[in-house]
Write a protein that binds this DNA or RNA. Structure first.
Lengths: 232, 232
DNA sequence: TAGGTTCGTGTACATTATACACACTGCTAG
DNA sequence: CTAGCAGTGTGTATAATGTACACGAACCTA
């Protein structure tokens, strides 16, 4: 059933950069799919797809994400819209890119959707070449993540509900690519007042177990609203 | 000459928020057009229009801008893409919003393009109701401007090539909505080392003339690249 | 020439950032 | 059972940065 318009129109897609953090080896990971069909058959690419006509763009991104990770309530933010003519060999395709932050544990086993041969986590510093302009999209996403982490503690979105302070520090060190001082890091966190101490401790670690903390979303939103500086 | 596709496609437009700053009365202004045609005939709206098929999205934004302001080399940045179904009564229209920063002097006399009955500068705190979801777009743009000003001195884009330190301070006070201390403001600026003192002074002012400064773009780009904090 | 308006400048004090080390816990392996 | 390994958790002194604050100089106008 064909659709006809008076003027030509680009196709509209979404692409998602799904970031996760693995505290065990301090690596930032991205979820990629292996394409099942041409163009770029068998290449790795960002998960994504066409936006349906009655569907909000962000809803489309969520739908695509859910197809791969079967997760709901994911932190999702619009990143940038890419629309240079020629970025897709099939014709003019404009893609709205989103990035998602998820705790690695909650998405250990991504499943290939119908348009993918495989789905896999890749460490950010060991990526295969990507289809289309997805390399560029990913770079923009990384930059944004690094920038954002400074004035909003989005780091929390990348950790499990309960986490140790060392995990949090490792996350910041990985994303920002710097080494932080343990005592000073904790001092600043304490002042921010967004952590809730729990009575739980790490389990099954071959050393003294660290206390686990939760994250106070209400206080956090207040602070973001007030333009608080979360530099660590 | 009709264009036919297998699946339905949204139309793609750009909208531009053009910010300018008037130091004389400390007001931040936005350029609006009055619509010539339905929908929202005679309403005020952000300048914008359809993206052509062979044209990059940013190029489209620049083109639309030039039609209204006849300025080139405008600071332009992609803001956000709005695509909620129903935001345009004519059908599904996805709009990539940009914001531009220009020195007011360089665009004193905007000219109405073919799709506009009038073009006018409005103070940000005295706006008419806007067509479509342009109120929302403008709010997002304002938020972004306020956020950005803290970690990138985009304020400079809003001033003439040569400006006094008081103008710059007024700009920051207006955008951020705070009052700053003159001596501390200058101390911080001096440390940033992005200002070049000229030998010129204000002309035709009814009081002691202030020295004019220029802005060292090279040093600035270096600092932005290094993640420098421009909070003032 | 007196008065109005904005310009341009420095210091003392409070706050915040940084550098730095060691005893404790809990597990593991001999 | 105990020695040692790995990671946890805690405080202080010093340097750097931010903040509060006032007045004489320049220039124009009436």
């Amino acid at each position: 059933m064909p659709y006809t318009y008076e003027y030509p129109r680009p196709a509209l897609t979404v692409d998602c950069i799904v970031f996760a953090f693995d505290p065990s080896n301090k690596s930032l990971k991205v979820l990629l799919i292996q394409r099942l069909a041409d163009p770029f058959k068998d290449s790795w690419a960002l998960p994504g797809g066409f936006v349906e006509m009655e569907e909000d763009i962000e809803t489309a991104a969520k739908r695509e994400l859910q197809e791969e990770t079967s997760m709901e309530n994911i932190y999702l933010e619009q990143l940038y819209t890419f629309g240079t003519p020629g970025r897709d060999p099939r014709g003019r395709v404009v893609s709205v890119a989103y990035y998602a932050l998820i705790p690695l544990q909650k998405a250990q086993k991504p499943v290939a959707a119908s348009d993918a041969k495989a789905v896999k986590w890749f460490a950010i510093d060991d990526l295969p070449p990507l289809a289309f302009d997805h390399d560029e999209i990913l770079q923009v996403g990384l930059q944004r993540l690094r920038g954002k982490v400074r004035y909003q503690p989005i780091g929390f979105e990348l950790l499990d509900e309960k986490f140790s302070l060392s995990d949090l520090q490792r996350l910041y060190e990985t994303v920002l690519g710097v080494k932080l001082d343990k005592r000073n890091f904790r001092k600043k966190l304490a002042k921010m007042n967004v952590l809730i101490e729990t009575d739980e401790y790490q389990q099954n670690v071959p050393h003294r177990a660290a206390r686990l903390y939760r994250f106070d979303k209400e206080k956090y939103h207040q602070l973001v609203h007030d333009g608080f500086n979360f530099e660590l």
